[in-house]
């Protein structure tokens, strides 16, 4: 059976290593990244990552908030 999937949108200041931080953030908490997309926004220097994750952990919503720990994070929303 397929594991439940969730989508997390993260708007960030476009800096080196943001992608690495996001990937390790989810992996450390036991999620698997199914798909990750980087989209430029209209504002220069600001990008949006659309990340599809799967995993048993029911606390995805709670963990998503912790993305604000990164100084690069501007906004997080979670579907």
């Amino acid at each position: 059976m397929d594991k439940p999937k969730k989508i997390v949108n993260v708007i960030v200041h476009d800096r080196p290593n943001v992608l690495v931080k996001l990937v390790s953030f989810f992996e450390k908490r036991g999620f698997k990244i199914e798909n990750i997309n980087l989209v430029k926004t209209e504002k220069p220097g600001i990008s949006k990552y659309i990340i599809i994750i799967s995993g048993e952990n029911k606390n995805i919503g709670k963990f998503s908030k912790q993305l604000y720990k990164f100084v690069e994070t501007i906004d997080v929303n979670f579907l």
Partner: peptide, 8 residues
């Protein structure tokens, strides 16, 4: 001051 701490 760090919102990632709240509800962590």
């Amino acid at each position: 001051i760090d919102r990632s701490e709240i509800e962590k």
